[in-house]
């Protein structure tokens, strides 16, 4: 289990290594990547993330534990970027290991869905031309 928030570019390999184990036959990974959306304000060229780290990390740990209880046992690792992420860069990375693939897929989907609802991270869209706007996640 590994939970991180930081400004360094995300790498999936350390997350895979953190969840892998002899009891697990499936590892599912998810990368959330910055998309060049065309918004009324312009085309997105970067997302700038900020976090309330203490609260965000505790909620990420809680989500990992819930995913394991509901779908696992599963081992979960989550990392989220802060600062500016350009188009094509990963802003969030998740790796989930479980005995079988169905549990790993379900737990990974649960982790990203809950992260978007519950983790204290915010993003500002920056557009070509210099405008910027805080953009909350859609209510699910």
């Amino acid at each position: 289990m590994r939970y991180e928030i930081g400004a360094a570019p995300l790498e999936i390999a350390p997350l895979i290594a953190a969840v892998a184990g002899p009891e697990n036959g499936a590892i599912v990974t998810f990368l959330g990547v910055v998309r060049a959306d065309d918004d009324p304000e312009g085309t997105v060229e970067a997302l700038v993330y900020e976090a309330y780290e203490e609260l965000a990390l505790s909620e990420m740990r809680a989500i990992g534990a819930e995913a394991s209880t509901r779908f696992g046992p599963a081992r979960v690792a989550i990392a989220h970027r802060t600062g500016a992420c350009g188009v094509g860069e990963a802003s969030v990375a998740i790796a989930v290991a479980a005995a079988h693939r169905a549990a790993a897929f379900d737990a990974c989907e649960y982790a990203i869905d809950e992260l978007k609802k519950r983790v204290a991270v915010w993003k500002q869209e920056r557009y070509r031309g210099g405008a910027a706007r805080w953009r909350p996640n859609a209510e699910v």
Partner: peptide
């Protein structure tokens, strides 16, 4: 003080209160 709370929570001297808009992670 780093934990989500409801707004009936009582404050004490020196508490750290975070004001948070809707989340946007992911």
């Amino acid at each position: 003080n780093g934990r989500l709370v409801a707004r009936d929570a009582t404050l004490a001297e020196g508490d750290e209160v975070a004001l948070m808009p809707p989340f946007g992670g992911g």
